[in-house]
């Protein structure tokens, strides 16, 4: 009897539809979010994440409608992110039926959003999502991470959907987020996202070992073994994937059966 490792399908939403692109570009339509979420639920998904990737630029409202429809039909945990800037935004989504809200760019711009959100809605509600990429320029105060090829770099937090570097060290930011009351870290590496070459193990394990809150690995899954590597080598508490599930390369159940066969505790 142990806490099981979680498999979390992620649905990137644009105007209320699921989309998937490579490195945040070339978006393709992948269906109705609630329909897909229901399918994942039936396959044994442990949670579902909705990320509204256009919310920063366009109208909100469609996401609220999607969340309420999903919450009415699904009895499993629901995380919503994208364009959340204020406590009122959080409140609206939680009222609509979200269990957790994920903040990314807005948390970097105003880290008190983490503490204020945690104080008002509880630590367990606040997921800090971070997009990171490798930086090989030497800089004081950064956390050196050794890559599998022997090179050393640090990971930099990037915001606005991966388009703007911040100069912030990813490990430092993760610890800062935890101290401010984040309940969970959703870590996406821009190096691996969309590549199907596997999670970015180096940064995932570095952060997971240094924080006391759960870490969700994201970006790069292409095979069943990549999930295993994410949990074992990456020390992730949950693995998130989008396209492999959307395009039916394998089901959530197949992933879990594979993990169970390799000795990882999962809910089947």
């Amino acid at each position: 009897m142990v806490l099981t490792k979680r498999i979390i399908p992620c649905l990137d939403l644009k105007d209320g539809r699921v989309v998937k692109g490579t490195n945040f570009l070339n978006l393709r339509d992948a269906g109705d979010p609630v329909e897909l979420a229901q399918r994942y639920n039936e396959q044994g998904a442990d949670e579902v994440v909705f990320l509204d990737i256009t919310a920063s630029k366009e109208q909100r409202g469609t996401i609220i409608e999607v969340v309420s429809r999903a919450a009415d039909q699904l009895f499993l945990p629901l995380t919503v992110g994208g364009g959340i800037r204020t406590l009122e935004d959080m409140q609206q989504l939680l009222r609509a039926g979200a269990d957790k809200v994920s903040i990314n760019t807005s948390a970097v711009q105003d880290p008190t959003l983490i503490s204020r959100g945690a104080e008002r809605f509880g630590t367990q509600c606040i997921v800090v999502a971070m997009d990171v990429r490798r930086n090989f320029e030497e800089r004081l105060g950064t956390t050196g991470i050794e890559l599998p090829d022997g090179r050393t770099c640090w990971y930099e937090v990037v915001i606005y959907g991966g388009s703007r570097p911040t100069g912030i060290d990813a490990v430092t930011w993760a610890k800062n987020a935890e101290e401010r009351g984040a309940g969970e870290i959703l870590l996406t590496s821009m190096e691996t996202d969309g590549t199907k070459a596997g999670f970015d193990i180096a940064i995932t394990s570095a952060i997971s070992e240094r924080v006391g809150i759960p870490v969700i690995a994201s970006g790069g899954v292409g095979t069943l073994d990549h999930f295993y590597d994410g949990f074992v080598a990456g020390r992730a508490d949950a693995c998130l994937a989008a396209s492999v599930f959307h395009y039916g390369e394998f089901t959530v159940r197949q992933v879990k059966e594979h993990l169970a066969a390799r000795g990882i505790p999962v809910r089947l």
Binding site: M1, V2, L3, T4, K5, R6, D46, T123, Q124, G183, E184, G212, I213, P214, D237, A238, R267
Partner: peptide
């Protein structure tokens, strides 16, 4: 209580005895 390698919050699916 703090325990090495154990994350808090206890978050996810666990079983009932």
């Amino acid at each position: 209580p703090p325990a090495p390698g154990m994350k808090v919050p206890h978050m996810g699916w666990n079983s009932l005895r």
